[in-house]
Amino acid sequence: MTQVSNTPVAATDVSFDDSRRLLESLRAALNRTVVGQDALVEHVVTALFAGGHVLIEGLPGLGKTQLAKGLAASLGLPGTRVQCTPDLMPSDITGTEVIGAGGQFEFRPGPVFSEFVLVDEINRATPRAQSALLEAMQERQVTHAGVTRRLPEPFHVLATQNPIDLEGTYPLPEAQLDRFLFKLSVPYPTRHSLRALLDVALDAEPAEALKPICNGATVLGVIERCRSVLISERCKSAAVDLILATQPASEGPARFIRFGASPRALQALIRAARVRAVMAGRSHLDVEDIAAVALPVLSHRVLLRFEGELDGSTEQSVLEGLIQAWRSRL
C-alpha cells in the first residue's frame, strides 16, 4: 500500500499563558458571533484543541452552521463543507480519480482533505457515505484505490444533525458516534440573547466579518501545550472511577444503562479536561476539569435499557445522577 503524506505543519511553541490568552480570545470572538451560546462555544473550543471532533445536534436556525463558519474563520484554517444528502457517495467525501491532462488517472482530493470540515446534516447521508468518514476521523488518513493518504494537520470535523425531520435519515451507528469527542446540544437562546442577536446579526452574517486570530501552526502549538498538562494520580483515579460508574449496575442510576462508556471515552475525558485546565491558566489537571467535560463526552457513549426509557430517563439525566454521585465520593 502506497503512503502519501502531506508536508506537516510545524507547531509553534506556545506557552501556557499564551495558550490561555488564545483560547480566551477565540471564545470571545465566537461568543460575539453566536449570541447566547457561551457553553456551546466553550465546549466546541475545548473539543477542537483536544484534537477531537464534534457532533452538534439542534433545531434548524439555532446557529450551528454559523458557529462552524466562525470557528474556521477565527482559527484561520481552510475549511470545507459537505452537505449530506441520501445520494451522497463516499467518493464525494474522500475524493476520486479523474483523468488528468496527461491522460493519466490522478487523485482529486475530496473535501475531507482540509483542516476544518463541516459536515452538515450528517444523518441524511447513507451509512456508506458516513462510513467514509470513519477512517478519516479516527486514523486521519484516507485510503483510495490502495493508496493511503494522510490528512492535513490539524484536522477537525464538525458535524451537525437535526433531531427532527427524521424521515429519510440514517441515524449514526454507535461506532461512528464514539469517534466524536463531544456530542453537544444547542439549547434555545434566552430572551436576552434573542434581543442581542438583533444588534449583532440582522442583515449580515457576523462570521464572515471575523478575522483570523491564529493559524494552523499556532493551533498545533496549543494542542501540544495542552498535551503537556500534568495529571495527578488523584485525577487519573477519578477519571477511571467515572468511566466505571457508567457501567451497567443492578442499582442506582446505572441500573438503566445497557452499555457503558468505552476506554476511548476515558481517553477523551482526559484529553478534553486538559484543555479546560489550560483555559483556566493551569498546567495541571483538576477533578473539576473532568467533571466539566464529563457530560458532553459521555452522553453519546452510553446506551440506556428499555426500562430506563420507560421510566422517562434520558442519557443526560442518568449521567447527571452518576456524575453527582461520583463528585460526592471525590
Partner: peptide
Amino acid sequence: QSAYSTLLE
C-alpha cells in the same frame, strides 16, 4: 485544585 498533589508527584 489538585495542584499540590500533582506537584509532589
